[in-house]
Write a protein that binds this DNA or RNA. Structure first.
Length: 213
DNA sequence: CACGGGATCGTCT
DNA sequence: GACGATCCCGTGT
C-alpha cells in the first residue's frame, strides 16, 4: 500500500522529476521518457493524477508547428524560452486549456504537449470536473480533457514543476517503458506546418486504451 | 463507427 | 478580423 504525504500527495516510493531531467537539449528524448511518468496536480489541496501515455514534441529552432517557431517571443510564448521545468499552458479553440512541459536550456524554446493520461489518483474528482457519467478513457484521453480532469487552466502557465508547493509536478513511480513499447507517428492538427507535418514527433504507449483519437 | 459542424475566445496580423 | 497543438453531439450507416 502506497503511503501519501499530506502536504504534496507524493508517494513515498516515487520521486519528483528534477531540473536535470528537463533542461537537457533534446525534446524528442524527453518526450519519450515522459511516457510512463505521472502528471500530478494539487488544486486547493485536492490531488489528482494520471500516467502519461501520449506526448508530442515541439521545438522553436526548426519546427513550424511550434508556437515559438522562428524564435517568436510573445507574451504567450515567453515561458517556452525559459529554462526547462515550467508549465506552458494555452487556450485552444477558445475552449480547451492545453498543458505542455517546457524543456531545454534558457533561450532554446522547446516543449512537450501532454496529450493523454491513464487516470490514477482521485478518479471521482476527475469525473466530477469532467462532468461525465460513465468512467472510461474519455476521462483523460485528449489534451483538452486531461487538463479539465486535473483542474489545470492557462492561469497556471509559467508555474514551476519543481517547487515543493507547485500546483503541478511530474513523478517517476518506477514504471519502465521500453523503446519497443513506444509508437512514433506524425503529430495531430498541425496541417499548416508544411514540411514538418509528417515528422514522427508524436509518441504513444503501444496498446494503451487511454491515448487520444 | 464515420463524418460534419458548432462552440468560443485569446492571440497575433 | 481570422484562426487555431480540440471536443462533443447529431446524423446516417
Amino acid at each position: 500500500m502506497i503511503q501519501k504525504k499530506e502536504s504534496t500527495g507524493q508517494s513515498l516510493n516515487s520521486r519528483v522529476l528534477p531540473k536535470s531531467f528537463y533542461i537537457r537539449d533534446d525534446v524528442l528524448q524527453i518526450s519519450r521518457e515522459l511516457l510512463g511518468k505521472y502528471l500530478v496536480s494539487n488544486i486547493g489541496g485536492k490531488i489528482t493524477s494520471g500516467m502519461i501515455v501520449e506526448t508530442e514534441a515541439y521545438r522553436a529552432s526548426d519546427d513550424k508547428a511550434c508556437h515559438a517557431y522562428n524564435n517568436r517571443r510573445t507574451k504567450r510564448t515567453e515561458v517556452m524560452f525559459q529554462e526547462g521545468g515550467r508549465a506552458y499552458i494555452y487556450l485552444c479553440y477558445g475552449i480547451h486549456h492545453l498543458f505542455n512541459v517546457v524543456t531545454g536550456p534558457e533561450d532554446n524554446a522547446q516543449a512537450v504537449l501532454i496529450r493523454a493520461l491513464q487516470a490514477e489518483d482521485n478518479l471521482p474528482l476527475m469525473q466530477q470536473r469532467r462532468g461525465i457519467q460513465r468512467m472510461g478513457p474519455q476521462l483523460s484521453a485528449g489534451p483538452g480533457v486531461l487538463s479539465k480532469a486535473l483542474g489545470i487552466t492557462k492561469l497556471l502557465s509559467g508555474v514551476s514543476l519543481l517547487e515543493g508547493q507547485s500546483p503541478i509536478w511530474i513523478e517517476d513511480r518506477n514504471k519502465v517503458i521500453s523503446d519497443e513499447e513506444i509508437l512514433a507517428s506524425p503529430r495531430v492538427g498541425i496541417d499548416y506546418a508544411e514540411e514538418c507535418v509528417d515528422w514522427p514527433w508524436r509518441f504513444r504507449i503501444k496498446g494503451s486504451k487511454w491515448t487520444s483519437k
